[in-house]
Write a protein that binds this DNA or RNA. Structure first.
Lengths: 343, 343
DNA sequence: GTGAAAGCGCTAACAT
DNA sequence: ATGTTAGCGCTTTCAC
């Protein structure tokens, strides 16, 4: 039978249990009992109670207590899903850290952390609603469920959303329609006609936009419809899906992958099926993989200028925190094209 | 002239400034002034003061206040450097989250975040020393400076260190010497004799161990010395370094890269120099890249079984937090070999 | 050798 | 329509 422990154990609980004061317990916990000259027996009894009762310190209380009233400290968070690739997040974090370092001072400190949630379950993040964890956050890689949640409640602190448009928040994203359109331009301009668009099964607003714009542009320019192939988030799954597609349409000659991870799998499938890239099939990705220029062949990409995206995000975040901005706004960053050997 | 603002602005500061009570300010900040029926003029004055004085809420205080006394909440952190690849961290985080979900209950919540520091400057992390941020942390990717710092101060909360041996902490790492030895086995066993070991210029304990063990094993088995080539952390830098090495030693026939990112650059340089992999040059990496099996050719890897590493780490962390374990311990995880087309 | 008290910053409940 | 009070959990001073 599990011990039905009621309220969490605090320093007080332990103090009462042992028959000493909270101060004594605190002293032992911070290993200052020597200088306070607590009786070794008391120390031992306290230690034992701490162990038995399963005491876990309350970090919020400690932090409040330890807080130096002369320094401003701000907690920033980057909220992303477990499922999304971390490369962009890490790049963003580095850039955020740089901007933040520039704004730091002896009396102004920032701490930034990455917090993850399961795709679609942003609402379950503890402390999200009551502003008790962050002074400001960047939210990215959300699924439509998360977007719906965000639309329904305006979070009571500074929020910048990346990659989707939510009317109640500041949003930074690739100019809608542009990514897909330019990918189509490259492939159609290279005289490719039997086209494929490869996406994850679970579409975010960004990936859906890229697909839709690509399909529309191809249709407009050639009168033909690209085939839509869906896979998981992994290269293995993409490879499998493309293999299956090649069996049905051996003459396909151009492919747009809405994430680079999928492009990586597609390249693999194409090469193992004996297709040369770009001679037989041209491939375009979006530049969200750290090493897209070391793929074989290096991947042509159509995607946002991430440095610019991050710069806009950080600038908005600080303006929100300082309340220089109060109204939501949408910022679009035009995608850039990086031509490499895959087209 | 910048306003030499003294103490950070609190709710009290604003209250005094406007001539109202702290409660009134708090009400406005949480947008509850309607239900409290504050005078619109007062609300406006408070809002203005908040803006002018640059108020930033103290999250620790809010959290303490908002804290539900019936739930235990524990803050876990994964501490890593900006410079290291995030893939392993994200994998670890997912695994940690899984374990933690299993240990969660209505009255027990965990939150895990990734916090990053600049390599070599772990000591500058705010809140690291006074246990006011985390109940437990996993530390990884440290440089020797960070290790020296850790050795000099025992952090006052649960800590598990990954990839290095520090006598005052619980450590989980690849069995020392094994990774390099097995890489040597594969290459020497494949009759490669002119060998290269490729490392970052800044070595961690793990990468140094792999290099040293490799060099020792090759020397023991062949009587010859592998050439040590160093690069930055990027594939581009690795490619450049290998290109330079090929110019000096065109007949080199085997390569061990102590990180996969470097292996990726090496593969590129080898192929552009007309070397076939594995026929002309065999390549071994360590399995720390998410997509090493989609490299071209897929990369043979010698590295720890990460699932096992993470399982050991999490188990130690919980034992430390619950004080079931109090003494430091070293846990070794044997590396596994994944043979792929690059050898 | 140990306890009592104060207070970090915030907000909900209770007063007016 | 607004102020006062109390207390979240912790640690440090001061008192005995």
């Amino acid at each position: 039978m599990a011990r039905a422990e009621k309220r969490p154990v605090t320093v007080q609980t332990i103090a009462k249990h042992v028959g000493v004061s909270a101060a004594a317990v605190s002293t032992v916990l911070s290993n200052r009992h020597e200088e306070r000259r607590l009786a070794p027996a008391t120390v031992e009894r306290i230690r034992q109670a701490v162990r038995e009762l399963g005491y876990v310190p309350n970090v919020a209380a400690r932090r409040l207590r330890a807080h130096d009233p002369d320094v401003h400290s701000m907690d920033l968070g980057i909220l992303t899903t477990f499922e999304a690739p971390l490369f962009l997040v890490s790049r963003a974090l580095e850039e955020v850290q740089r901007s933040v370092d520039a704004r730091s001072a002896p009396d102004r400190r920032f701490s930034i952390s990455i917090d993850m949630f399961h795709a679609g379950r942003l609402r379950d993040m503890p402390g999200l609603l009551n502003a008790s964890r962050f002074n400001g956050v960047i939210i990215t890689n959300t699924l439509p469920e998360d977007d719906a949640f965000l639309r329904s409640t305006t979070l009571p602190y500074a929020v910048v959303v990346q990659g989707r448009r939510l009317p109640n928040y500041c949003c930074v994203l690739e100019t809608p329609g542009e990514g897909g359109r330019r990918a189509a331009e490259i492939l159609v301009g290279g005289s490719r006609r039997r086209l494929v668009v490869l996406t994850p099964t679970l579409l975010t607003e960004t990936t859906a936009d890229r697909r839709d714009a690509f399909v529309a542009a191809v249709r407009a320019q050639t009168g033909r419809e690209p085939v839509h192939v869906a896979a998981d988030f992994t290269p293995a799954s993409a490879a499998e899906a493309i293999r299956a597609h090649l069996a049905k349409d051996p003459r396909c000659d151009g492919l747009f992958a809405v994430t680079d991870t999928l492009a990586l799998g597609a390249l693999h499938a194409l090469k193992s099926a004996g297709r040369r890239v770009p001679q037989d099939v041209a491939v375009v990705g979006v530049g969200d993989h750290e090493h897209a220029d070391f793929f074989d062949p290096p991947l042509t990409c159509v995607g946002p200028a991430y440095d610019q995206v991050v710069a806009e995000i950080v600038s908005l975040l600080f303006n929100l925190m300082s309340r220089r901005r109060v109204r939501p706004v949408e910022v679009f960053v035009a995608p850039t094209v990086t031509l490499r050997a895959s087209t």
